[in-house]
Design a protein around this nucleic acid. Structure first.
Lengths: 216, 216
DNA sequence: ATTACTAGACCTCGAGTAA
DNA sequence: TTTACTCGAGGTCTAGTAA
C-alpha cells in the first residue's frame, strides 16, 4: 500500500516546499478516519521514504522527500495523459484507391473475430484509403503515441498473419477505426479505415473526395 | 473504498470513451493482484455506479459512467492545483509606511507562538507595508485561491483577536510571509509582510523603494 | 480461458493505554 | 493535547470450487 491519499493530504498542506507542522488528528479529520490510522500511515510513508519527519510530543514536522514528490508527479502525469488523449482531433484527407489487400485480410476470420471483440463491430470486407496532406501527416505521427487497440498476429494454414494497431474514429456519425499494420511500412501519408459498412458507397465517395475523420 | 486504482486502469484502457472488453485477470496483472480481487473491485465499482458493464462467460464489456469520469477528473484537478500552486510567482510594489498596528499584534504572544509554530520563524515585531500597482493587484487576488496557512483567532484579556491567513514568501533570500487579517478589509492593493528580521533596516528600504517578493 | 461465490488467512482499523 | 503501541473486531485478500 502506498497510502497515496495520505500523501496527497500532506502535500496539500504545503509539505512539498517546506517542513510543515501537522498532527495525526488533523490529517485524520480531512481523511475521515481515526488519528491512529493517520499516524500509522505517516509512519509507513516515512519508512518508505516518501516523507521525512521529526515527531515531538506536540505534533510532528513533515516534509515530502524527492521520492514522495515524484510519486505525486507520476499520478499527475497519468491523469494528464488520460485526459489529453481524450481531446478529439480531426484529420482530413482525400479518398484514393488502395491495393485491394484490405478485402483479403478482413475476410480472414482471425482478424474479423478480433475486430468484433476489440472494436465492437463486424468490419465491412474492404478498407477506405485516405491520403493526408503534409499538415495532417504531422498530426498522424502524434497518434502513434495515443496508444491504440492491438490486433494480434497469428498463424493459420501455414501462413503468418501480422499484427497491427487500431485507432477508433468517427466518420460522419459512423463508428470506424484507422488500421495500421505493424510490419508493412505503408507510406506515412496514407491511412486505411475500416467500418461496419461500405463507406465509399454509403457516403457516396469517389477518388479525390475530401473526408474528415474524428479521432475518438 | 473507492477503488480509484482499478478505475484508473479501466480508464487507461479507453473505457471513458467507449465500451471495452476486458477480463479481470488482465486488470489484476496490471495492478499486481489476483483476478478475484480485480473482479471484486469491478463489482464494487458497478455497484457504486462508476462503471456500467455486461459480464459474459468470456470476459466483460465495461464503460465508465459520467460519475466514474467525474471521479477521475476530480483527482486530476487536485493534482493540477497542487502543482500549479507550486510555480513560484513574483509580485512587485513600493514600500509605504503603514499604521503601525503590526508591531502591536506581533508583540502579542498568541500570534507570535502561532507564527513560530506554523511558519517556522519568530517574527520581527513590525510589518513591512507594500503598495502594489494595478497589474500586481490582479496577481494578488489569485493568491487567495492558493490557500495559505491559517492563523487562528483567540480571546485574551477580554479582547478578541481575529484570525488571518499567511502566505509564505521570499524577499531577497529572506523567508517571510504575507499576512492577511481575516476581518479588517485592508485596501486590496496593500499587503503586509512579516519576516524574522527588520526588512526595512536590513534591506535599506525607504518609502518609495521598489521591492520584489516571490510567492513560495 | 472466463465470472461468481465461499472460506479461511491475513491485514487494516480504531478504542484503549502509556508516556 | 500529542505520538506510539497493543489487541480484538471487521474487512479484504487469495485459493478453491462451480458453472
Amino acid at each position: 500500500m502506498t497510502h497515496i491519499e495520505t500523501l496527497k493530504q500532506i502535500a496539500s498542506l504545503g509539505a512539498m516546499d517546506r517542513t510543515v507542522k501537522i498532527s495525526s488528528s488533523e490529517i485524520a479529520e480531512k481523511m475521515l478516519t481515526s488519528p491512529q490510522t493517520a499516524a500509522r500511515h505517516l509512519q509507513s510513508l516515512e519508512k518508505n521514504e516518501m516523507i521525512e519527519r521529526q515527531t515531538t510530543s506536540s505534533g510532528q514536522w513533515v516534509k515530502l522527500t524527492g521520492r514522495g514528490i515524484q510519486q505525486l508527479e507520476e499520478e499527475y502525469n497519468f491523469y494528464k495523459r488520460l485526459f489529453k488523449a481524450r481531446t478529439p482531433t480531426e484529420i482530413e484527407g482525400v479518398v484514393i484507391t488502395g491495393l485491394g489487400e484490405g478485402k483479403y485480410y478482413l475476410s480472414n476470420d482471425g482478424y474479423r473475430k478480433q475486430i468484433e471483440e476489440k472494436l465492437g463491430f463486424t468490419p465491412f470486407p474492404g478498407t477506405l484509403n485516405i491520403k493526408l496532406d503534409q499538415e495532417n501527416t504531422i498530426i498522424r505521427r502524434s497518434l502513434d503515441t495515443r496508444g491504440g487497440i492491438r490486433i494480434d498476429g497469428f498463424t493459420s494454414d501455414n501462413r503468418t498473419f501480422g499484427g497491427g494497431i487500431c485507432l477508433p474514429i468517427m466518420v460522419e456519425e459512423i463508428r470506424g477505426a484507422i488500421i495500421q499494420p505493424e510490419r508493412t511500412h505503408y507510406p506515412e501519408d496514407i491511412i486505411e479505415i475500416i467500418a461496419p459498412i461500405n463507406l465509399r458507397e454509403h457516403l457516396n465517395l469517389k477518388d479525390g473526395s475530401t473526408i474528415k475523420i474524428k479521432i475518438e
